[in-house]
Computed example of a mutant assay.
Amino acid sequence: MDRNFQDRFLEKWTRYFAGAELPIGFYYSDTPDRRNRARIPRGHRCIIGDLAKVRMGRPLCFDAGTIGCFGGKRYLGFESALAPDFEYFLSCGIPGKLEGERYKKSPDLVKEHLRHQKPWKAPGDYIHFKRFDMMGEEDQPLVIIFFACPDVLSGLFTLANFDQADPCGVFAPFGAGCATIVDYPCQELQSPEPRPVLGMFDVSARPYVPSNVLSFSVPWPKFVRMVDNMEESFLITGSWNNVRRRIKKAGNRP
């Protein structure tokens, strides 16, 4: 990442969102970060819980063997296959065999949903997560992820829509928590106008974030535009200053 751009964002973030948590970013590579490699899971482990450490400033590197959830492997791009009977797992379950999450009304509806969510293929063997201020010049993030309260989200949402006429410049797709911070925003990178993704509505992932926090994941090209627009946007107005003071007072920490 360009150091001047990094410093510019950090200065603006402190000015307009003082007290708010810094975002994290991720990129892929074929080389592990052995010093910060995630441990091999013992049973199920949600990657959203692991990312709490990244949000506190500890980089983490994952591969297919250190992700403790079949959904996480799929939505981070390391596995395209679905778990057996997935259409029942996401819906009504199978009596005496499989408990259903009941996130969709029927197995057939799950199958139809999956036609709209093609698996993302990781461009490298390892995915690296780092907090924004911990990134070096060699790090080239694909997506920047904010974990934020409603006041911060209002600023990010409005800033994302500042330079476009389309009222749907941000979208909130149905999906696992990890899908809304990696899979969907990475898919958006293929678009000429990549959209930020509002997420963390996944009931299963909610226990791993504070009760007043959602995610806002921004594909890198869109993030650069948002940063460039900060100083001519609503962020310099008295209206935002009223919100900004409340953000600073409340704070928003992992």
Rank of each mutant, 00 (worst) to 15 (best):
F162P: 01
P192C: 13
T180G: 01
T158E: 13
Y184I: 02
P192D: 15
A172F: 04
P196T: 06
T180M: 02
A179D: 10
G199I: 05
S191I: 00
A176G: 12
P167M: 13
D166H: 12
A160C: 09
R195Q: 09
L189C: 09
P196M: 08
E193K: 13
L198E: 03
G155H: 03
N161W: 00
V197E: 01
S154E: 10
C186N: 12
P173R: 00
S191D: 11
G199C: 08
V182Y: 07
F174R: 01
E193T: 14
T158K: 11
C186D: 01
A176H: 15
A165W: 07
N161V: 00
S191R: 14
S191L: 12
G175C: 05
T180I: 05
G169L: 07
Y184G: 01
V182S: 09
V197S: 00
I181T: 12
C168S: 12
G177I: 06
D166P: 00
D163T: 15
C168N: 14
G177E: 03
P196N: 07
L189K: 07
Y184F: 15
V197D: 01
D163F: 11
P192T: 14
Q187A: 12
F174D: 01
R195K: 15
D163V: 10
P194K: 04
M200N: 08
E188W: 09
Q164I: 08
P185W: 04
V197T: 09
M200L: 15
T180A: 03
S154L: 11
V170R: 06
D166R: 12
V182D: 07
A179H: 05
V197F: 03
S154G: 00
Q187W: 11
P194R: 03
T158H: 10
V182W: 04
S191E: 14
G155T: 04
P185H: 05
I181G: 02
F174C: 01
